[in-house]
Amino acid sequence: MHNTVALILACACVTYLTRIGGHVILSRFGEIHHRAKAALSAVPTAILTALVAPSIFTNGSAEALAILVAGLVALRASLMMSVAAGLATVVVLRALLA
């Protein structure tokens, strides 16, 4: 029981370290190189793409098409609309393909 609590708290500590660590390390440097800036500016695109990529290929065609629809809609409309369009695609196609 106590071991489990200690383990949970240890997991919480390392998780917090990952969340504050990047900022703490980076703020040690004053002016950062333009390449480092470019890399940081690409973090959301790079990480989120890496996060999503497998879900295009590890599910069915309904899910892959839904990702495509959500991406295209997001070019023109709001995020909410994009998610709604992707969701509608996945629900309809799953029902049709099932």
């Binding site: 500016s41 959301p44 839904a66 070019l75 995020l79 994009s82 998610v83 996945v90």
Partner: peptide
């Protein structure tokens, strides 16, 4: 389709950054 909302949400966000270098 609830299980698939997060990938869709992240996709929409990624596209939102399409003007970055």
């Amino acid at each position: 389709g609830v299980d698939f909302i997060l990938p869709l949400y992240f996709t929409g966000l990624v596209v939102g950054f399409h003007k970055r270098p």
